[in-house]
Structures are given as structure tokens and as C-alpha cells.
């Protein structure tokens, strides 16, 4: 019944999906945190930039952003992501970049709502003992903000996992691209879709369950 799978590197394709997800997750966590720091910081220019970035990026379809990294950054501006001679690597990295730029806007907003759960008084007390802005943020505010948004961040991660399929648009050999290829070659539309759907559920379901548990575990008692 599953003979149609023969000759296709299903695991390899999902491995690319996982790599796209993990690298973009780390990237968006870093960039999203920096954006959130800008948005709550004292420098008007940075606040303005953060606000502008988030409002712009999260309103652009991901496909447009991914295509832009390929057509705009790579082909027009010549950004090669350090892999000029290897087209496959280049596209993979561009996809990670695009996914990171996009997802970080959502990470930023999730974090900002977490920052709002931290009582202002604690930040003031931190300033009162002489901590500077960065220390107040990294030692007092962000640790509590992160703990309160593990759930929302898990949702962002799940969305990211599914969003990696958009990388197929620039030819990254992840799961969705293989699925498209298989559907074209085999007369097993429903079964093939089911296999891939199952694959994604296998990736996202544990994410939700584990992070849900972690969220409860690290919640700050007030």
C-alpha cells in the first residue's frame, strides 16, 4: 500500500524541514528579542524602528518575503549568503533568513505582551538598586516575560514549522517540495497528503505538548 514511497527520500525532506525550523526559530528568538527590547527601550529612534518593522513585516505575506530574499536580495543585489557556488545551500540560507525576518515580528509581539505582565514596580526597583537599562531588561524583565509567554511562543514555533513549506517556492528541498513532486509522479493524492500531514503533526504536536508543560513548570508565582 505504501509502495509509492519507494525511491523518495521522505526522511531527508523532513530533516530539511526540521533544520529550517530550528535555525529560523533560533534566529527569530534572537532578532525578536532585540526588536522587543527596542520597542520598550528609551531611545525614540529605536522604538520607532521596532514599531515600523513589526507592523510592516507581519502584514506582508510570507511568500512575498521568501521570494524577495531570493529574487531581490540574491538575484538583484547579489547577496549570496556565503554560498555563491552552491545554489542549494544559498537558497536554504535565504529561506532561513526570510523565515527569521518574518517570524521575529511575531516573537517580538508575544514577548512584548509578556513584558507587560511584569509589574512596573519591579523594573523601578531594579533601576533603584543601580542596574542600567540593559541589566533591568535582561536580569529582571525578560526572564519573567519569557516565562509568561512560553505558550504563545509555542504557537509561533508551530506556525513557523508549517510556514517552512513556503521555502518550496524558492526550491528548497523540504517536505512540501517533495510532496508536490510525489503528487505529480504518483497516483496517490490522498495517501501522499495524509503521509505529509502526519509528518507535520509528528513535528508540531510534541512541540505544543512539551512547551505547554514547560510553560506551567516555569511560570512565575505572584
Amino acid at each position: 500500500m505504501f509502495d509509492f514511497l519507494e525511491g523518495y527520500d521522505l526522511l531527508g525532506a523532513f530533516w530539511v524541514t526540521i533544520q529550517l525550523t530550528l535555525l529560523s526559530a533560533v534566529g527569530s528568538l534572537v532578532w525578536g528579542t532585540l526588536l522587543a527590547a527596542m520597542r520598550v527601550g528609551p531611545v525614540p529612534l529605536m522604538r520607532g524602528f521596532g514599531t515600523f518593522y513589526v507592523n510592516t513585516v507581519r502584514n506582508i505575506p510570507l511568500t512575498v518575503i521568501i521570494l524577495f530574499t531570493s529574487l531581490g536580495l540574491s538575484q538583484t543585489l547579489g547577496v549570496t549568503m556565503g554560498a555563491a557556488d552552491n545554489f542549494e545551500t544559498q537558497n536554504f540560507r535565504l529561506a532561513v533568513l526570510g523565515l527569521t525576518l518574518y517570524t521575529s515580528a511575531f516573537v517580538c509581539e508575544a514577548l512584548r505582551s509578556g513584558i507587560n505582565t511584569v509589574p512596573v514596580g519591579q523594573a523601578e526597583a531594579a533601576r533603584a538598586i543601580g542596574l542600567n537599562f540593559t541589566q533591568v531588561l535582561t536580569l529582571v524583565v525578560l526572564p519573567q516575560a519569557f516565562r509568561s509567554v512560553v505558550g504563545p511562543l509555542a504557537n509561533v514555533l508551530i506556525a513557523l514549522t508549517k510556514n517552512t513549506t513556503v521555502a518550496a517556492a524558492i526550491g528548497v528541498a523540504e517536505a512540501a517540495l517533495l510532496m508536490k513532486e510525489m503528487i505529480e509522479n504518483e497516483a496517490q493524492l490522498i495517501l501522499i497528503s495524509a503521509v505529509f500531514a502526519f509528518g507535520f503533526v509528528c513535528l508540531t504536536l510534541p512541540t505544543g505538548l512539551i512547551l505547554g508543560w514547560v510553560g506551567k513548570k516555569v511560570a512565575v508565582k505572584r
Binding site: G121, Q122, E124
Partner: peptide, 14 residues
């Protein structure tokens, strides 16, 4: 150098 104690304690909850 200036210690401050607030009405609402404001201890770091984490």
C-alpha cells in the same frame, strides 16, 4: 547610593 523601599515591595518575583 540611594536605597529605595516601595509601598508594594517590588521584589523580583522570579
Amino acid at each position: 547610593d540611594v536605597g529605595m523601599v516601595f509601598q508594594s515591595f517590588n521584589l523580583f518575583a522570579h
